[in-house]
């Protein structure tokens, strides 16, 4: 009887141990300045995808960043002070897709366009578009005086139906060349960048590659898989195209530029894009602040990381003199290139 009771007791203990050990939980940080700081640092440490690239480009050492900023955390600091320290730490990543959002502020890194000339003017855009331009799914388009088609794509937040794209390219079908202006386009949906790029290729092409992290280690990265651009089922543009870019061409627009570079008869013109070549994910801190970070890196068709931007084929900048005279240097350079092949 005693033996049976002992066996039963052992079985019960083993079952309880299994039950307790079997609980799957995540390490939690306290909702204190130190806890929130550590949670933020670790979220980035385990999920951010560009540590190797940032180390190569800016000598970033994330452990050293931790040590440097940890010393600035004190238990008595208030939320604004903690937010300031955390936002300065995030700026070390030099990534526009990294944000910390609280109820009172958004920490951001905008040097990728603020430190550069705008190379874009709303006033000039209005002058070129006039008042009788057409709009389809956010694409503003018209035929310029010299029979060059012009499309201004200010974001990829709109979903393009085949009817939208057919309408645009039907109207522009008789043009001798086409300008697709994605200056100041700060992104949107990757799928729409892919859909629009599909109007410029007659065959399926590899526009770039995409990967993701497979674990918390900085170098735990999946094999990059090809990003295929499939030809649009409706109207497709067959003549020469110039894509205008500036530093505020970012995120999904950066990806569009990457796709267009892989298409035939397409020339990128302007200044380097702003980058943002990592699809961002969200997480949160114990105090409820939201954190955004790049999670899925993208590479161009030659496996170059596009996080720091894409160099155009032809460099053109907006000049003060043209601006004063009401001309957009970049649009004019594109028109000349499309008409005569003359390089700026």
């Amino acid at each position: 009887m005693n033996k049976t009771a002992t066996i039963l007791r052992l079985c019960l203990m083993a079952a309880m141990t299994w039950l307790l050990a079997g609980c799957i939980t995540e390490d939690e940080f306290d909702n204190t300045p130190s806890g929130n700081f550590e949670a933020l640092w670790r979220t980035l440490d385990e999920h951010y995808c560009f540590f190797p690239e940032k180390a190569a480009a800016h000598q970033l050492d994330w452990n050293e960043v931790h040590e440097r900023y940890r010393q600035k955390i004190v238990p008595t600091m208030n939320s604004e002070q903690l937010f300031e320290v955390c936002s300065h730490m995030l700026r070390e990543l030099r990534d526009g897709h990294v944000n910390l959002t609280s109820s009172f502020n958004v920490a951001r890194y905008w040097d990728w366009f603020e430190n550069y000339p705008a190379n874009f003017s709303d006033s000039l855009l209005r002058r070129y578009l006039g008042k009788d331009y057409a709009i389809s799914a956010g694409l503003r388009y018209r035929i310029l005086d010299d029979n060059i088609g012009y499309i201004y794509c200010g974001s990829f937040d709109h979903a393009y139906g085949s009817g939208n794209l057919n309408a645009v390219f039907t109207k522009l079908a008789m043009c001798n060349g086409l300008i697709v202006d994605i200056r100041n386009n700060e992104g949107g949906m990757l799928s729409e960048a892919q859909n629009l790029a599909g109007c410029f290729t007659n065959e399926e092409i590899t526009g770039g590659y995409m990967a993701h992290k497979t674990g918390p280690a900085h170098d735990a990265m999946s094999k990059p898989e090809p990003l295929k651009v499939k030809p649009a089922e409706g109207m497709r543009w067959q003549r020469k195209t110039v894509v205008l870019t500036n530093r505020s061409t970012y995120s999904a627009a950066n990806t569009f530029a990457m796709y267009m570079r892989a298409c035939k008869n397409v020339t990128l013109m302007g200044t380097p894009t702003g980058g943002g070549g990592g699809m961002p994910f969200h997480s949160e801190l114990p105090n409820g602040w939201s954190v955004r970070f790049s999670a899925c890196p993208m590479f161009d068709k030659d496996m170059n990381c596009v996080e720091e931007g894409i160099e155009p084929d032809l460099r053109v900048e907006l000049t003060e003199e043209d601006f004063r005279q009401g001309f957009d240097t970049m649009i004019e350079a594109a028109r000349a290139y499309l008409k005569t092949g003359e390089k700026p």
Binding site: S191, G215, A295
Partner: peptide
Amino acid sequence: PNYTQSYYEIFSLGHYDHNVCVTNP
């Protein structure tokens, strides 16, 4: 999904990466 694999990769691009896992206790 894999660690930071997006659903865009899985369902729009068809990039699979250990998305079906064998499980045990």
